[in-house]
């Protein structure tokens, strides 16, 4: 089952590209009042929602193989895990909304575009977190992932606290 893990970085491209393209089609379609672009917008979004099902599923599966200690990298991972289904839920809701507009033959409104923009923004955050996990923390990168804890420690070099107090006025007693 963990063999499926490398599929996640492949599948995210479909989600990202299709959602972003759907936003672009609908935005242009609205600005240019081009019905062809609107049709493209609907289908792209529908495909995006469909493609995101395996994206989320492989994402969960790839988590099973990542050995990662408590720390900042883990916090990225947790947020990435929490945000995934939220983004998917937004995407499904947007698809239903788009379908309602499409079946009614209506042009998309600005509210719709704003909501789709928000969805795409969530996706961007999600993609950023995923990118950081791999490129910065080396999660699931063969040969590197064992070092996560040390990398974390060395990333935050020891920083002594600033002491604003004067040193003791008298010399240290009992010197050798």
């Amino acid at each position: 089952m963990r063999r499926a893990a490398p599929l996640h970085p492949i599948l995210v491209h479909f989600t990202i590209a299709l959602t972003a393209t759907a936003l672009a089609f609908d935005l242009l379609g609205r600005v240019l009042h081009a019905p062809g672009l609107a049709v493209a917008g609907w289908w792209t979004l529908a495909f995006s929602a469909a493609a995101t099902v395996p994206t989320v599923a492989t994402g969960v599966v790839s988590r099973l193989g990542v050995d990662i200690g408590e720390g900042e990298a883990r916090a990225y991972l947790r947020l990435h895990m929490a945000l995934g289904p939220v983004f998917f839920g937004m995407l499904v809701a947007m698809t239903v909304w788009r379908a309602v507009l499409w079946t009614a033959g209506r042009e998309v409104g600005w509210w719709y575009l704003a909501a789709l923009g928000l969805t795409a923004a969530t996706m961007a955050v999600q993609g950023y977190l995923g990118g950081e996990l791999v490129y910065r923390w080396g999660a699931a990168v063969e040969g590197r992932h064992r070092d996560l804890r040390q990398r974390h420690a060395s990333d935050t070099p020891p920083r002594p606290r600033r002491d604003t107090r004067p040193e003791p006025a008298h010399p240290a007693p009992g010197g050798a």
């Binding site: 895990m81 945000l83 939220v86 839920g89």
Partner: peptide, 17 residues
């Protein structure tokens, strides 16, 4: 509907805690 997905994500995160 949306809160259900937030819950799904948070439960997934919950496993990780």
């Amino acid at each position: 509907f949306l809160i259900g997905f937030v819950g799904l994500g948070m439960h997934l995160r919950g496993f990780d805690r």
